[in-house]
Protein backbone atom coordinates (compact mmCIF):
# COMPACT_ATOMS: atom_id res chain seq x y z
CA UNK A 1 0.00 0.00 0.00
CA UNK A 2 2.75 2.40 1.00
CA UNK A 3 4.52 1.46 -2.15
CA UNK A 4 1.53 2.46 -4.28
CA UNK A 5 1.23 5.80 -2.52
CA UNK A 6 4.93 6.38 -3.09
CA UNK A 7 4.47 5.59 -6.77
CA UNK A 8 1.59 8.05 -7.03
CA UNK A 9 3.44 10.92 -5.37
CA UNK A 10 6.55 10.28 -7.42
CA UNK A 11 4.63 10.47 -10.65
CA UNK A 12 2.70 13.58 -9.72
CA UNK A 13 5.54 15.66 -8.38
CA UNK A 14 8.91 14.21 -9.32
CA UNK A 15 8.53 12.40 -12.62
CA UNK A 16 5.92 14.82 -13.83
CA UNK A 17 4.91 14.18 -17.44
CA UNK A 18 5.30 17.85 -18.38
CA UNK A 19 8.12 19.10 -16.21
CA UNK A 20 10.43 16.11 -16.40
CA UNK A 21 9.57 14.53 -19.76
CA UNK A 22 7.82 17.28 -21.75
CA UNK A 23 5.05 14.92 -22.80
CA UNK A 24 1.76 16.27 -24.05
CA UNK A 25 3.23 19.70 -24.64
CA UNK A 26 1.23 20.48 -27.77
CA UNK A 27 -2.18 20.50 -26.16
CA UNK A 28 -0.59 21.77 -22.95
CA UNK A 29 0.49 24.98 -24.66
CA UNK A 30 -2.51 25.30 -26.95
CA UNK A 31 -5.26 24.78 -24.38
CA UNK A 32 -3.79 26.51 -21.33
CA UNK A 33 -5.09 29.95 -22.31
CA UNK A 34 -8.07 29.76 -19.97
CA UNK A 35 -8.46 28.02 -16.64
CA UNK A 36 -11.84 26.49 -17.34
CA UNK A 37 -10.89 24.56 -20.48
CA UNK A 38 -7.64 23.47 -18.83
CA UNK A 39 -9.54 21.86 -15.97
CA UNK A 40 -11.74 20.06 -18.51
CA UNK A 41 -8.83 18.75 -20.55
CA UNK A 42 -6.95 17.82 -17.39
CA UNK A 43 -9.81 15.66 -16.13
CA UNK A 44 -10.20 14.03 -19.53
CA UNK A 45 -6.48 13.17 -19.62
CA UNK A 46 -6.53 11.69 -16.08
CA UNK A 47 -9.49 9.57 -17.11
CA UNK A 48 -7.99 8.30 -20.36
CA UNK A 49 -4.52 7.51 -18.95
CA UNK A 50 -5.98 5.72 -15.92
CA UNK A 51 -7.98 3.45 -18.25
CA UNK A 52 -5.44 2.91 -21.04
CA UNK A 53 -2.34 2.12 -18.97
CA UNK A 54 -3.79 -0.99 -17.26
CA UNK A 55 -5.33 -2.19 -20.54
CA UNK A 56 -1.98 -1.85 -22.28
CA UNK A 57 -0.34 -3.52 -19.31
CA UNK A 58 -2.54 -6.60 -19.83
CA UNK A 59 -1.72 -6.53 -23.53
CA UNK A 60 1.99 -6.30 -22.78
CA UNK A 61 1.91 -9.14 -20.25
CA UNK A 62 -0.25 -11.62 -22.13
CA UNK A 63 0.55 -10.84 -25.76
CA UNK A 64 3.59 -8.75 -26.53
CA UNK A 65 6.44 -9.51 -24.16
CA UNK A 66 9.02 -12.12 -25.14
CA UNK A 67 7.53 -15.41 -23.98
CA UNK A 68 4.22 -13.76 -23.11
CA UNK A 69 2.26 -16.18 -25.25
CA UNK A 70 3.29 -19.13 -23.07
CA UNK A 71 -0.27 -19.37 -21.69
CA UNK A 72 -1.40 -20.60 -25.12
CA UNK A 73 0.83 -23.63 -24.78
CA UNK A 74 4.54 -24.36 -24.91
CA UNK A 75 4.60 -24.10 -28.71
CA UNK A 76 3.95 -20.36 -28.41
CA UNK A 77 6.48 -19.68 -25.65
CA UNK A 78 9.20 -18.53 -28.02
CA UNK A 79 7.29 -15.77 -29.76
CA UNK A 80 8.44 -12.23 -29.19
CA UNK A 81 5.91 -9.76 -30.52
CA UNK A 82 7.36 -6.71 -28.77
CA UNK A 83 8.05 -5.05 -32.13
CA UNK A 84 4.29 -4.61 -32.51
CA UNK A 85 3.88 -2.76 -29.23
CA UNK A 86 3.83 0.80 -30.64
CA UNK A 87 1.14 -0.13 -33.11
CA UNK A 88 -1.06 -1.99 -30.63
CA UNK A 89 -0.68 0.62 -27.89
CA UNK A 90 -1.74 3.45 -30.14
CA UNK A 91 -4.61 1.39 -31.56
CA UNK A 92 -5.83 0.56 -28.04
CA UNK A 93 -5.62 4.21 -27.03
CA UNK A 94 -7.52 5.39 -30.11
CA UNK A 95 -10.18 2.71 -29.62
CA UNK A 96 -10.64 3.43 -25.91
CA UNK A 97 -10.88 7.16 -26.49
CA UNK A 98 -13.56 6.50 -29.10
CA UNK A 99 -15.37 4.16 -26.73
CA UNK A 100 -15.24 6.61 -23.84
CA UNK A 101 -16.59 9.31 -26.11
CA UNK A 102 -19.57 7.16 -27.13
CA UNK A 103 -20.31 6.05 -23.57
CA UNK A 104 -20.17 9.58 -22.21
CA UNK A 105 -22.32 10.89 -25.03
CA UNK A 106 -24.97 8.28 -24.32
CA UNK A 107 -25.12 8.43 -20.53
CA UNK A 108 -24.11 11.92 -19.57
CA UNK A 109 -24.75 14.61 -22.15
CA UNK A 110 -23.68 17.33 -19.74
CA UNK A 111 -20.30 15.70 -19.17
CA UNK A 112 -20.04 15.17 -22.91
CA UNK A 113 -20.58 18.86 -23.48
CA UNK A 114 -17.82 19.64 -21.03
CA UNK A 115 -15.26 17.02 -22.14
CA UNK A 116 -16.43 15.98 -25.59
CA UNK A 117 -14.36 18.39 -27.63
CA UNK A 118 -11.18 17.33 -25.85
CA UNK A 119 -11.47 13.60 -26.33
CA UNK A 120 -10.38 13.42 -29.99
CA UNK A 121 -7.39 15.61 -29.06
CA UNK A 122 -6.32 13.11 -26.46
CA UNK A 123 -5.76 10.17 -28.81
CA UNK A 124 -2.68 11.93 -30.13
CA UNK A 125 -1.61 13.40 -26.81
CA UNK A 126 1.95 12.24 -26.28
CA UNK A 127 1.38 11.93 -22.55
CA UNK A 128 -1.07 9.06 -23.10
CA UNK A 129 1.20 7.01 -25.36
CA UNK A 130 4.16 8.09 -23.27
CA UNK A 131 2.57 6.66 -20.14
CA UNK A 132 2.00 3.35 -21.94
CA UNK A 133 5.61 3.24 -23.13
CA UNK A 134 7.03 4.15 -19.72
CA UNK A 135 4.83 1.43 -18.23
CA UNK A 136 6.41 -1.03 -20.65
CA UNK A 137 9.93 0.18 -20.05
CA UNK A 138 9.71 0.25 -16.27
CA UNK A 139 8.09 -3.19 -16.18
CA UNK A 140 5.55 -2.61 -13.44
CA UNK A 141 4.86 -5.89 -11.70
CA UNK A 142 1.13 -5.82 -10.96
CA UNK A 143 -1.94 -4.33 -12.55
CA UNK A 144 -2.48 -2.27 -9.39
CA UNK A 145 0.90 -0.63 -9.83
CA UNK A 146 0.16 0.05 -13.48
CA UNK A 147 -3.20 1.63 -12.64
CA UNK A 148 -1.76 3.81 -9.89
CA UNK A 149 1.07 4.81 -12.20
CA UNK A 150 -1.47 5.81 -14.87
CA UNK A 151 -3.53 7.79 -12.40
CA UNK A 152 -0.46 9.53 -11.01
CA UNK A 153 0.88 10.40 -14.45
CA UNK A 154 -2.49 11.80 -15.53
CA UNK A 155 -2.92 13.72 -12.31
CA UNK A 156 0.53 15.25 -12.64
CA UNK A 157 -0.27 16.34 -16.19
CA UNK A 158 -3.58 17.88 -15.12
CA UNK A 159 -1.90 19.68 -12.24
CA UNK A 160 0.70 21.14 -14.60
CA UNK A 161 -1.81 22.46 -17.12
CA UNK A 162 -4.06 23.98 -14.45
CA UNK A 163 -1.13 25.75 -12.81
CA UNK A 164 0.07 27.16 -16.12
CA UNK A 165 -3.44 28.28 -17.13
CA UNK A 166 -3.91 30.10 -13.85
CA UNK A 167 -0.63 31.94 -14.32
CA UNK A 168 -1.41 32.79 -17.95
CA UNK A 169 -4.74 34.28 -16.92
CA UNK A 170 -2.95 36.43 -14.36
CA UNK A 171 -0.31 37.72 -16.76
CA UNK A 172 -2.73 38.50 -19.58
CA UNK A 173 -2.54 42.22 -18.90
CA UNK A 174 1.11 42.32 -17.94
CA UNK A 175 3.54 44.27 -20.03
CA UNK A 176 5.53 41.50 -21.70
CA UNK A 177 7.95 42.32 -24.54
CA UNK A 178 5.94 41.87 -27.73
CA UNK A 179 8.02 39.09 -29.34
CA UNK A 180 7.80 37.07 -26.15
CA UNK A 181 4.01 37.22 -25.86
CA UNK A 182 2.00 34.01 -26.03
CA UNK A 183 4.17 31.04 -26.88
CA UNK A 184 7.54 32.42 -25.77
CA UNK A 185 6.54 33.39 -22.26
CA UNK A 186 4.64 30.10 -21.84
CA UNK A 187 7.82 28.16 -22.51
CA UNK A 188 9.79 30.21 -20.04
CA UNK A 189 7.03 29.95 -17.43
CA UNK A 190 6.95 26.19 -17.83
CA UNK A 191 10.72 26.12 -17.44
CA UNK A 192 10.51 28.11 -14.20
CA UNK A 193 7.72 25.86 -12.91
CA UNK A 194 9.86 22.84 -13.75
CA UNK A 195 12.73 24.29 -11.72
CA UNK A 196 10.34 24.73 -8.81
CA UNK A 197 9.14 21.14 -9.17
CA UNK A 198 12.71 19.90 -9.09
CA UNK A 199 12.62 20.81 -5.44
CA UNK A 200 10.66 17.61 -4.92
CA UNK A 201 13.47 15.51 -6.33
CA UNK A 202 14.86 12.97 -3.98
CA UNK A 203 12.05 13.06 -1.44
CA UNK A 204 11.54 9.69 0.18
CA UNK A 205 8.16 8.72 1.46
Amino acid sequence: MENLFDLFVRNVFIENMIFAYFLGMCSYLAVSKTLKTSVGLGIAVIFVITVTVPVNWLLEKYLLKAGALAWLGPAFANFDLSFLSFLLFIAVIAAIVQLIEMVIEKFSPSLYNALGIFLPLIAVNCAVLGAALFMQEREYGTIAEATVYGFGAGFGWALAIVVLAAIREKIRYSNIPAPLRGLGISFILTGLLAIAFMGFMGIKI
Binding site: F22, G184, I185, F187, I188, G191, A194
Partner: peptide
Protein backbone atom coordinates in the same frame (compact mmCIF):
# COMPACT_ATOMS: atom_id res chain seq x y z
CA UNK B 1 15.01 19.46 -18.15
CA UNK B 2 13.84 23.01 -17.29
CA UNK B 3 16.59 24.68 -19.28
CA UNK B 4 15.38 23.02 -22.49
CA UNK B 5 12.07 24.87 -22.11
CA UNK B 6 13.70 28.17 -21.28
CA UNK B 7 16.14 27.80 -24.20
CA UNK B 8 13.24 27.26 -26.62
CA UNK B 9 11.44 30.26 -25.10
CA UNK B 10 14.48 32.42 -25.78
Amino acid sequence: PPMALITVGI
